[in-house]
């Protein structure tokens, strides 16, 4: 239990670092570390497949994409953030922490839930048989993403042709 809470705290701390760090590359890296923590939490919650995806895709692929974007936009792209943003963050964060704690504690006694029976079958069966529609939608999302990237980068190709 304590290990789990430590991992969760690590996740939150690295996410906050990702937001507060000035250097974008460092921010992207701390986001990756946060993903790593999340992946380990998934493993410990008996969700190995989701953990693998979180670590390989989010901590790996998305970080690479971020780093690439940072590298491509590096030249004179210094953006001055308002100083108040960073200074005020701990204050708001603590206020929200207290509210969050109180709300969750009060909800704790009140929320009933239906008891769920134990699941049968394997991960593959659940994915392919009972969530087949999600796979179709996933194909749709991937197609949309690919077409979107094609559409957004098409000008460059034209320049090459001309």
């Amino acid at each position: 239990m304590i290990i789990q809470i430590l991992l969760l705290s690590g996740l939150v701390i690295f996410s906050i670092l990702a937001i507060l760090l000035k250097d974008l590359l460092k921010a992207a890296l701390s986001l990756a570390v946060a993903s790593l923590f999340l992946g380990i939490i998934f493993f410990r919650l008996d969700a190995p497949y989701a953990g693998v995806f979180e670590i390989s895709v989010v901590a790996g692929l998305i970080t690479v994409l971020f780093a690439l974007t940072v590298a491509l936009t590096r030249k004179d792209s210094e953006v001055k953030e308002a100083r108040l943003t960073r200074l005020a963050f701990p204050l708001f964060f603590v206020i929200f922490l207290i509210i969050d704690g109180l709300v969750m504690k009060s909800l704790l006694q009140q929320v009933p839930a239906l008891p769920a029976g134990p699941e049968t079958g394997s991960f593959g069966e659940v994915l392919w048989k009972s969530r087949t529609f999600d796979l179709v939608a996933q194909l749709g999302v991937i197609l949309a993403g690919v077409l979107a990237v094609l559409a957004l980068f098409r000008k460059k190709e034209e320049d090459k042709d001309e």
Partner: peptide, 18 residues
């Protein structure tokens, strides 16, 4: 999920003029 399918396509279409 389907909300997201339509949404991702619409982001690209809004920016289609570049």
């Amino acid at each position: 999920l389907f909300l997201e399918v339509a949404a991702v396509a619409s982001y690209a279409l809004v920016a289609f003029g570049l």
